[in-house]
Design a protein around this nucleic acid. Structure first.
Length: 936
RNA sequence: GCCGGGAUGGCGGAAUUGGUCAGACGCAUCGGGCUUAAAACCCGAAGAGGGCUUUAAAAUCCUCGUGUGAGUUCGAGUCUCACUCCCGGUACCA
């Protein structure tokens, strides 16, 4: 018999409201506090399946914890500033505020249909003046302490949204919101100095027990690299170029210097560049390129600065200066020393502009050996260009497999000559053209065939075959037969020649790769012969540079040239200097007499009211700030406001923060890893330093949830027509069935993706019907059969444990197993049914409430304690007997049976005795309660 | 390219610290029951392959099986190494 979910759910929700069931008393000292947080939604007015997955499943845990005696704070609010409201205003002429609040009302109704246990009394709405007043107050605090700065910097601009964007909001060179390619502009904007916290944001991750994928993504975003600042002076000038490099050990190989097009040194012609017009044109051209164009087309471009040069501080040589857009203005100093021999990008540029390549590091390969015998040798790669093949010798598996031509160099012999000689001796070919060669490669290995440790100094050569002319005379007789000579296609040789030295030579000469690793310094003055890694900092000292650390992280750009955001609480004095708006004038209200249309100018600039307000309060000549704040500022501290959302005198309550922070567990989407999650960590640290917040990490635990795919396994989208509307399923099967299905769909503690199964919800509805039928068979019995008692005890322990791990899928499975165990019974005691209702309550709160009433329970099922029962320790256990690791039988033994008893018992099993074949076991592995393995 | 995560039946997914039987739980599938019939419900089958017996079936037995290949171990989905593919992040970051 079906249960009427509509009626049950309506009644349960009314009951909870009348009992005010979910209000948390934050100052309650009798229970342990637990702060469970879910990212608050943007009020789009459309509650999709993703919202359900976010809120309904987390709600299961909130309910479970309450039943387990915790004082649970599970709040909700709305991240209500943002572009959609403004776009609606532009498109349909509605008031963004009205639009937003209407959506919030609508969404509250939709959220209620899930039956969530939110404590609405603590609601926050980011666009409400009572909230943004404190966003402004906190911004002012940051400004007063130098953490909010007004500065000029290259910034990302979205031409469609007509606003600047933070770095984090640019995905693949496109605007995160609208997908338009962004362009770079140099503008004066408001930044929050998150870079000051780069190191601490990094360090803080060490202690957090978050999953690696979250921590590593943040680490990569922060992008710490250690190196040095070196100075390249400019002859006949006061000016010099400072570069940042992580490879100061290669400075002797720096053959030119490159400036980013935006570099300040070339913004005007202070240097007296003779081709300045050409430079200006190049700067202009690159400025017009979008991010994407710059990074997609990696063909190097640039222009030499004629009439000026720089001095390499190591070699004292005069070297040319270039401007090129492969150097980024926003990283390091916006200038690099180019070492083409040891950097891929510099090498590419050098080849294109025909600049010198100077090797200063000889590679070291192989495994270091004890007491090696030094030797000079060569490796020769011979290419037949006509056929696209390369000459290889196959020595067989024992002698090193497939190799190119290798050999020793005789005393006083020229290396190239030696290479020619070896080729002739081993293959007979003599008509060769020398194309290129490598620097010395230091290679260590153990030659098993000759039983000797070698450390060789090898030089690699590339030859091209002119003709197949062979000189059979030169073929060496005693080598004959040890290997086979063959011409292999280049790709095959690349795959099959795996020996390190030969591979290295091939990569260097045929594939054109440069050596970017460490090695032995050469051609580096007094440092020659030393290990590059070891000599690195001595070289920095030698050239008068200093150690420097650089981060990829940029300061957080928070200005937005948009209307529907928090007004930046700043005014400018007649000299144009920014001042914060005093606290008594907060909230600094968003004006309403504005033109929303994006013009590139901030919409607030069109407000007369705002200008008049500033004049009235601050005086003639004072002007307002017209930009608004990035909405990520609003969400960087909302979890603090929940603790005291109605406070008119402070942003939060110090005592409550002390008690409730950090958030115990934060559930959200993976897409916020380098945005909201990083920003709010920064905010918390900054406020901690200002003694406003008692913790310096906001979230003890963080879980990124997965995403729900369409039934076809594809990402849901209107164009694919695979969008699941949760309301439909709620109508048909009930909110409880949808909740429990979402819990069951897959593990919640990792960010996987799960296709929505059309039959899945129906099957959950059936499961709930089974529970209803069980409850209908409830009998008044005082005696509870032991087997039932055990089933209940196991289920309650398992469900609680899985909840703690955010593995609701196996938790639901445990409830299903419980049902499978209880159902066959002819009669089910009322107490058992009640306990089932209690365990079901977090998952299917409405039905559980209904059953609780039917079963004669007092009050609300959600006020019941989670059942804790002892699981009887088993005294006997079946353990498996293996012979040589193969199962041959099983014996039932006391849990603490001794090994001797176990073996004796096992030998009685015929199959075991059989398998032993009368032999005594040589070894016995006995794991009490689990396994006995007899090894013969 | 680099960093991270992953790969288990037709599908979603289970499997404490390496410890029997891999595949819990559910979906889909198939067979049966109930019914005049259908739905609902109930019972049952099921990784792949094979052998024996038999009219047939079942029980029973054997081999292989957690992306591929090697290894460690008495014992590997779980540990190590190499590789393939998929997903996510990031990318001219000096």
């Amino acid at each position: 018999m079906a249960y009427d979910h509509r009626d049950i759910e309506k009644k349960a929700q009314e009951k909870w409201a009348s009992l005010d069931l979910y209000r948390a008393d934050l100052s309650d000292e009798t229970k342990e506090p637990y702060y469970l947080l879910v990212e608050f939604p943007y009020p789009s007015g459309d509650l999709h399946i993703g919202h359900w997955y976010a809120f309904a499943v987390t709600d299961i845990y909130a309910r479970m914890l309450r039943m387990r005696g915790k004082n649970v704070l599970f709040p909700i609010g709305f991240d209500a500033f943002g572009l959609p409201a403004e776009n609606a205003a532009i498109k349909h002429g509605v008031d963004p505020k009205e639009w937003t609040y209407k959506n919030i009302e609508k969404m509250k109704g939709q959220l209620a249909s899930m039956g969530p246990s939110f404590d609405w009394s603590k609601e926050v709405v980011a666009c409400d003046p009572s909230y943004y007043q404190w966003t402004q107050w906190l911004f002012a605090k940051l400004f007063e302490h130098g953490l909010a700065v007004h500065k000029e910097a290259p910034v990302k601009w979205c031409p469609k949204d007509q606003t600047v964007l933070a770095n984090e909001q640019v995905i693949d060179g496109k605007c995160e919101r609208c997908g338009t390619e962004v362009v770079e502009k140099r503008l004066t904007q408001w930044f929050l100095k998150i870079t000051d916290y780069a190191e601490r944001l990094l360090e803080g991750l060490e202690k957090l027990p978050w999953r690696n994928e979250i921590k590593d993504a943040q680490r990569a975003w922060i992008g710490k690299s250690e190196g040095a600042h070196l100075e390249f002076s400019i002859p006949n000038s006061q000016l010099s170029i400072e570069v940042f490099t992580t490879r100061p050990d290669t400075v002797f190989g720096a053959t030119y210097v490159v400036l980013a097009p935006e570099h300040t040194l070339i913004q005007n012609n202070e240097l007296g560049i003779t081709n300045y017009g050409e430079i200006q044109e190049y700067i202009k051209r690159t400025a017009q390129k979008t991010e994407r164009e710059r990074s997609e087309n990696k063909e190097k471009t640039g222009v030499e600065l004629k009439g000026v040069s720089a001095i390499n501080p190591a070699t004292k040589e005069e070297i040319p200066i270039y401007v090129a857009d492969y150097v980024l203005a926003s990283y390091g100093t916006g200038a690099v020393m180019a070492v083409p021999a040891h950097d891929e990008r510099d090498y590419e540029f050098a080849k294109k502009f025909d600049l010198p390549v100077r090797d200063v590091i000889e590679p070291v390969t192989g495994t270091p050996q004890k007491n090696p015998e030094p030797r000079k040798s060569i490796v020769a790669v011979v290419i037949d260009r006509k056929n696209g093949t390369v000459l290889t010798l196959d020595w067989g598996p024992a002698l090193g497999g497939k190799l190119y031509i290798g050999g020793g160099r005789e005393e006083g012999e020229d290396a190239a000559q030696a290479a020619m000689r070896e080729i002739a001796e081993e293959t007979g070919y003599t008509d060769l053209k020398l194309v290129s060669q490598t620097s010395v490669i230091h290679h260590s290995y153990f030659a098993y065939s000759k039983n000797v440790a070698r450390e060789i100094e090898a030089i690699g050569f590339l030859f091209e075959l002119n003709s197949d002319a062979k000189d059979e005379q030169k073929l060496e007789k005693d080598e004959h037969g040890k290997f086979t000579v063959s011409w292999l296609p280049l790709e095959q040789a690349e795959r099959e020649v795996s020996e390190t030295l030969h591979r290295t030579v091939f990569e260097r000469l045929v594939l054109g790769r440069v050596h970017t690793g460490s090695g032995v310094l050469v051609d580096s003055g007094e440092f020659s012969g030393r290990n590059s890694e070891e000599a690195k900092w001595d070289i920095v000292k030698y050239v008068g540079g200093e150690k420097a650390i650089n981060y990829r992280l940029r300061d957080w750009l928070v200005s937005r040239q948009r209307y529907w955001g928090c007004p930046i609480p700043i005014v400018y004095d007649p000299e144009g200097k920014p001042h914060t708006i005093p606290a008594e004038h907060l909230p600094w209200l968003l004006p309403t007499d504005v033109d929303f249309r994006p013009t590139g100018e901030a919409p607030l600039a069109s407000s007369n009211e705002l200008r008049e307000r500033v004049t009235k309060i601050f005086g003639e000549g004072w002007t307002p700030e017209y930009d608004t704040l990035d909405t990520f500022v609003d969400s960087s501290w909302y979890f603090l406001r929940y603790l005291d959302s109605q406070d008119a005198h402070d942003f939060s309550d110090a005592a409550l923060m002390k008690k409730w922070m950090p958030v115990n567990r934060y559930s959200g989407g993976a897409e916020h890893t380098t945005l909201h999650l990083l920003y709010s960590r920064f905010f918390t640290k900054a406020l901690y330093d200002l003694a406003l917040v008692p913790v310096d990490e906001p979230y003890a635990e963080r879980f990124n949830r997965g995403i729900i795919l369409g039934p076809d396994g594809q990402k849901m989208s209107k164009s694919k027509g695979n969008v699941i509307n949760p309301d439909e399923f709620v109508q048909k099967y009930g909110a409880d069935a949808v909740r429990i299905y979402l819990a069951f769909i897959g593990p919640y503690n990792e960010a996987g993706s799960y296709p929505w199964s059309l039959d899945g919800v129906a099957s959950m509805h059936k499961f709930l019907e089974r529970v209803v039928r069980l409850a209908e068979r409830s009998q008044d019995m005082s005696e509870v059969p032991e087997a039932m008692r055990q089933s209940l005890a196991k289920a309650s322990a398992k469900v609680a444990e899985d909840g703690d791990r955010f593995k609701f899928n196996t938790g639901v499975a445990a409830l299903m197993i419980l049902m499978n165990e209880l159902e066959p019974a002819a009669s089910v005691p009322n107490g058992v049914c009640r306990e089932v209702a209690v365990m079901l309550a977090p998952f299917a709160p409405h039905l559980a409430e209904h059953l609780w009433e039917k079963l004669g329970g007092e009050g609300s099922v959600h006020r019941q304690a989670w059942p804790v029962a002892e699981i009887a320790a088993e005294t006997e256990k079946e353990i498996v007997v293996q012979v040589n690791g193969k199962r041959r039988g099983a014996v039932t033994l006391a849990v603490d049976a001794s090994e001797a008893d176990a073996v004796a018992e096992a030998l009685k099993v015929p199959a075991v005795a059989n398998a032993l074949g009368g032999n005594e076991p040589k070894r016995v592995i006995y794991v009490p309660g689990k396994i006995l393995n007899l090894v013969v």
